[in-house]
């Protein structure tokens, strides 16, 4: 277990949204295999700081795979090669000594780069604001057990609700589509009786906002499901497609 790794990192450096950006190569030594990928980046950053260079900017927070802040494309794969794993939960035991690792930010028009590996995912917030909610005002709810919900529906709903909004689906999609993210939210809500009431306007509004943000279209390649750290199923996209047929479209802006 005491194995140490020496690695070569090819890292995307971009100083601000307007910078063109380029790859820089760094070497890191004596990386413990039980480190997480982000801890490996910490080691690099501590070294860079001591050498008077600017450390690599990357988003991260909870480091336990639930906040959805972290993410990078590692050797061409969103969140790295493991399935169902966020970057913070990817451990260095899955890498080889002397390996070259190419690290890039999520690349999509809907996720402009802010700096290095940090991208702007506020498009997701705007999609949720467009309709990803149930308009229940605080205080208006009946007793929690007033409306029974079939266990099966709630389990399916929870499968979709597990989305952490990290954006890996967009990053991995050959078309930079956000269908899995949007589909998951639509499924989460429409599978519950509480969410059915406004489902027609919700679906239309969210899909329109998604299009407005410049995300691509689904070509049913299912890279999103494979890259999703919560393994959210593409059947949620199918459900969204079905819902969309019956949705109310918002007026054209």
């Amino acid at each position: 277990m005491d194995k140490k790794l020496n690695l070569k990192l090819m890292l995307w450096r971009q100083n601000g949204a307007k910078d063109k950006g380029k790859f820089e190569t760094y070497k890191v030594k004596d990386i413990d295999v039980s480190m997480s990928f982000l801890e490996m980046l910490d080691v690099l950053n501590e070294t860079l700081t001591r050498e008077g260079q600017e450390p690599v900017a990357f988003d991260h927070d909870c480091r336990e795979g639930i906040c959805g802040a972290c993410g990078a494309v590692v050797n061409g794969k969103a969140h790295g090669k493991l399935k169902g794993t966020t970057l913070c939960q990817l451990h260095m035991r899955h890498f080889e000594n002397n390996e070259t690792i190419v690290i890039e930010p999520w690349r999509a028009k809907g996720f402009p780069v802010i700096k290095d590996l940090v991208v702007d995912r506020s498009s997701f917030d705007r999609i949720i604001a467009a309709g990803g909610y149930i308009s229940a005002k605080t205080g208006s709810a009946p007793d929690a057990n007033a409306i029974p919900v079939a266990k099966e529906s709630v389990e399916q709903s929870m499968d979709a609700a597990a989305c952490i909004g990290c954006g890996a689906c967009v990053a991995a999609c050959p078309n930079a589509a956000a269908m899995l993210f949007v589909g998951a939210k639509i499924s989460h809500l429409v599978l519950l009786p509480q969410g059915k009431v406004e489902s027609k306007t919700r679906t239309g509004n969210m899909v329109h906002q998604m299009d407005k943000e410049g995300f691509g279209n689904c070509s049913n390649e299912y890279e999103c499901e494979a890259a999703c750290p919560k393994s959210i199923s593409v059947s949620n996209i199918a459900l969204m497609n079905r819902e969309f047929m019956f949705s109310k479209n918002p007026p054209k802006p």
Binding site: Y133, A136, A141, P142, A144, P148, V154, S157
Partner: peptide
């Protein structure tokens, strides 16, 4: 009231 409200909001509590 918290549980009531969260259910109304669509929190998929175990059932």
């Amino acid at each position: 009231a918290i549980i009531d409200h969260c259910v109304a909001q669509g929190v998929p509590f175990a059932r």
